[in-house]
Design a binder for these strands. Structure first.
Length: 358
DNA sequence: AAAACATACAACCGCACCCGT
DNA sequence: TACGGGTGCGGTTGTATGTTT
């Protein structure tokens, strides 16, 4: 069956031969394409106009840039895709000489897998949802091949009962109040999330805290924080933010404040002082962010986790890159708690970390 | 060496939109 | 307003090539 536009014609399909290419190039070079449906007849081709157009646009056009994508192009694709989604033609406009088809193929064959291996959902660019949690290799020090992803995707659905299946139900509940430290607390959602792995069980709400009300980018760590509404009212799911990342460091900064108790712990961080000079001014005032959650998980995170990260200068340094394997943070908790706060992290660098998941 | 499998990319298909009649 | 042709777009399929078993 041919295309609608040429269903009455006897047309050739499949790969183009060099002779056909030559005919098409010659015709368009001399006469332009004009009306595509008339091109095959004028060029002496047994093809439909649609096929000619596609061949010209995607392959024969002289201004096409052939060859593999550069890192810069890849970054551009990811950044624009985060904003536009699968609008390949729009994305391709940001890449001179590239076609929508080329971008789409590159995305599907390469970028998509790369994002998944980094624990990111290629559709939303957020961390993968809890039931798709990418489990960090229990002993990453054994993973010496830098080309291999540090995550593998495990679908836990079958091992979970209906009651404990971790399907977050987000109910936007935006409110703002301040504590004595002038830290603005935004309660983003109430999240009925039940988690019974590792004998942990919590059902609480999460908060996002920042000292300023703007979307803030934690430059040196590629972690992102926002005090803007982060829930899409129609889908009730977190909104992804159009932020690009360039660093592959994971640097939480320094903990400067904590408050609350076992049921509502807040942890505030000061940006790492190791961030590049050029960002010092841009990121003022010092960003303070937190993960806030409840029950045992908070306790575990707040006490054991931070203590284990204490370094020699007496401060609780959260530079994840310095972990030596003694840290006992519950990765699942981290994701569950941080993702609803719309924190984005380039987890590709997590191969620097050594976790003791036991 | 050959079969099976995986990957990349070219091409196709169906649909939606625009525009002229 | 309805209709039809032309075009563009995104999803999907097909195929050549590379890799593994």
């Amino acid at each position: 069956m041919g295309h609608h536009c040429c269903s009455k014609q006897k047309v050739k399909r499949g790969l183009w031969s060099p002779e056909e290419d030559e005919k098409l190039i010659k015709h368009i070079t001399n006469h332009g394409h004009g009306c595509w449906s008339s091109v095959p007849k004028l060029a002496g081709l047994q093809r439909c106009g649609k096929s000619c157009r596609l061949r010209w646009i995607n392959y024969l056009r002289p201004d096409l840039r052939r060859g593999s994508f550069t890192e810069q192009e890849e970054r551009t694709i990811i950044d624009v895709h985060r904003i536009l989604g699968n609008r390949w033609a729009q994305i391709a406009k940001h890449l001179p000489g590239r076609t929508d088809n080329e971008v789409k193929n590159f995305w599907n064959s390469c970028i998509k897998k790369k994002l998944i291996s980094q624990g990111l959902d290629p559709n939303t660019h957020n961390l993968l949802s809890p039931h798709q949690i990418p489990i960090l290799n229990a002993n990453p020090s054994k993973n010496t091949d830098p080309t291999k992803p540090v995550f593998s995707i495990i679908n836990n659905t079958s091992s979970q009962t209906k009651d404990t299946k971790r399907v977050p139900s987000f109910r936007p509940h935006l409110s703002t109040n301040s504590n004595d430290n002038n830290v603005v607390i935004h309660t983003l959602y109430e999240n009925s999330l039940s988690h019974q792995n590792s004998n942990l069980n919590y059902q609480d709400h999460y908060n996002l805290v920042s000292k300023n009300n703007d979307v803030t980018r934690h430059q040196s760590s590629t972690m992102y924080f926002s005090s803007q509404p982060l829930v899409d009212n129609s889908t009730k799911m977190p909104i992804s933010l159009p932020i690009s990342s360039s660093s592959n460091q994971l640097d939480f900064g320094t903990m400067v404040q904590s408050w609350g108790g076992n049921t509502n712990l807040g942890v505030a961080f000061e940006q790492s002082r190791s961030r590049p000079e050029e960002y010092q001014e841009m990121l003022q005032p010092q960003t303070t962010i937190m993960a806030c959650q409840g029950n045992d998980v908070a306790h575990e995170f707040g006490n054991k986790g931070l203590d284990d990260m204490r370094d020699g200068d007496g401060l609780t340094n959260m530079d994840m890159g310095t972990f030596d394997g003694s840290c006992n943070i519950d990765l699942e908790f981290m994701e569950a708690a941080l993702m609803p706060c719309a924190m984005y992290t380039n987890v590709g660098s997590l191969d620097q970390l050594a976790w003791d998941c036991n």
